[in-house]
Amino acid sequence: MVELVKFVLSHLVDHPDQLSIKEIEGETTTVYEITAAKSDLGKIIGKQGKIINSVREVVRAAASKDSNKKIQIEVI
């Protein structure tokens, strides 16, 4: 799933090289922490969080295929 998040986001940001995603696995949830260049944060989040919310939904749908774990995506 990290790859999926990374792939989608790298096509949205100006500096894909500064993009990093950390996966933290918990018992019931998996948290993905996104760190990116400051100038890219707006591009990742989008107007009213439109983009990040879309990413969340798509990743959630993709992840639910394999496991029942909850997915949480956070931009730091």
Partner: peptide, 20 residues
């Protein structure tokens, strides 16, 4: 089937990606 209702969101994401 996998995407379900989030296909609309992917549509939106794709649009943003294409126009970046």
């Amino acid at each position: 089937e996998i995407l379900g209702r989030s296909s609309k969101k992917l549509e939106f994401l794709l649009t943003t990606m294409l126009n970046k």
